[in-house]
């Protein structure tokens, strides 16, 4: 098991690295953004697809990851490497705190409470000028010397995103991931068979928050700046659309969605500022006509073509794709 995981990891890193060598500055920056958003979307889908929890405040953790780094670097002055390690940990702790309240609630209540908490974190960041710089953000972040050349940073991003992606993949395919899906399908039955629903939800909320923090950290280091907009609800909308468009009941769906949405945003930004309208329209169309998402529909079609009776667990089907597809 470990050996196959390591093999996928190596292939993915090597392919992405080769691709990044071929790209110019603009496309490398775009590629890095896609990878970071893919990790962010994967962390989000751990809640949405795996556990069936719709969080509207996930971007707050993305922002907290970046801001923790930025604040430690500019206000405390701890070494950059220490900050890189501390940022995801701090984010996970905040996710634990927020999750403590949120996971008590189900369905719509959970969603609304995450929205509310996300708005509080955003508001505090936005208004606390003396500490967070308010809407001016924090710019000109220091980075470890080793990570300053864009090529080096690209390698770092590839390394971190692929490692996190594989960790998330293994998590989704572990007994823990299985328990999450049971909770998603039927919460009461999960409780009856002895799954500690609230505790598992808190754990998955914390993990998802931590990985979102890593994505936020990578994003902050990529642009060397953080802004309150990173944690605005529109950012959550974006990651939600990525997951749904790609397919929330597949592991790689969010990665595909992240690629499409990010490239679309880069391309469309030159034509219009009404990005939310486009996101909303995609979301609406997905919900009404395409709830399976791209990867989900493809899998369905493949399954029909291959004819043999469907495997009892939908996980087996995508296992054949393997981690090598992380390339996305």
């Amino acid at each position: 098991m470990w050996r196959s995981g390591a093999w996928h990891w190596l292939v993915a890193v090597a392919v992405l690295f080769t691709l990044s060598l071929l790209l110019g500055d603009f496309y490398r920056h775009l590629g890095m953004t896609v990878l970071i958003m893919a990790l962010f979307a994967l962390s989000y889908n751990l809640l949405l697809g795996e556990t069936g929890l719709v969080s509207f405040g996930h971007a707050a953790f993305f922002g907290v990851g970046g801001y923790t780094y930025a604040l430690l670097a500019t206000k405390v002055g701890t070494p950059a490497l220490v900050n890189i390690v501390l940022a995801p940990i701090a984010t996970a702790l905040i996710a634990l705190l927020v999750g403590y309240f949120c996971v008590r609630l189900h369905g719509i209540l959970f969603s609304m409470l995450t929205l509310a908490f996300g708005q509080v974190i955003y508001t505090v960041t936005f208004q606390w000028y003396s500490f967070t710089g308010g809407d001016n953000g924090i710019v000109g972040l220091p980075a470890p010397p080793l990570l300053i050349p864009p090529g080096n940073y690209a390698v770092f991003v590839i390394f971190v995103v692929v490692t996190c992606g594989i960790a998330l993949w293994r998590l989704a395919h572990s007994p823990f991931g299985q328990a999450l899906r049971i909770m998603r399908e039927n919460r009461e039955r999960a409780e009856f068979i002895g799954i500690p629903v609230r505790r598992l939800r808190l754990i998955v909320f914390t993990i998802a928050g931590g990985f979102a923090g890593i994505a936020g950290l990578l994003f902050a280091l990529l642009n060397r700046q953080v802004f309150p907009d990173d944690m605005y609800w529109a950012q959550t909308a974006q990651v939600l659309v990525m997951s749904l468009l790609g397919g929330i009941f597949t592991f790689l769906g969010p990665v595909v969605g992240a690629f499409i949405v990010t490239v679309l945003q880069y391309w469309i930004a030159t034509y219009t500022i009404y990005w939310l309208l486009i996101l909303g329209t995609i979301l609406l169309l997905c919900v009404l006509f395409f709830p399976q998402g791209i990867v989900g529909s493809l899998q369905e079609r493949l399954k029909h073509r291959l004819a043999p009776p469907p495997s009892p667990s939908p996980l087996k089907g995508e296992g054949t794709g393997g981690g090598g597809l992380v390339v996305g």
Binding site: L48, G52, V54, F56, G107, I108, S111, A234, A237, L240, L244, Y274, W275, L276, L277, L279, G280, T281, L283, L284, V287, L288, P291
Partner: peptide
């Protein structure tokens, strides 16, 4: 989940 997402899509569209 889908109902939540649908009304959320309306929020995004109306905002813009």
């Amino acid at each position: 989940v889908m109902q939540i997402l649908l009304t959320y899509a309306v929020v995004l569209m109306v905002a813009d």
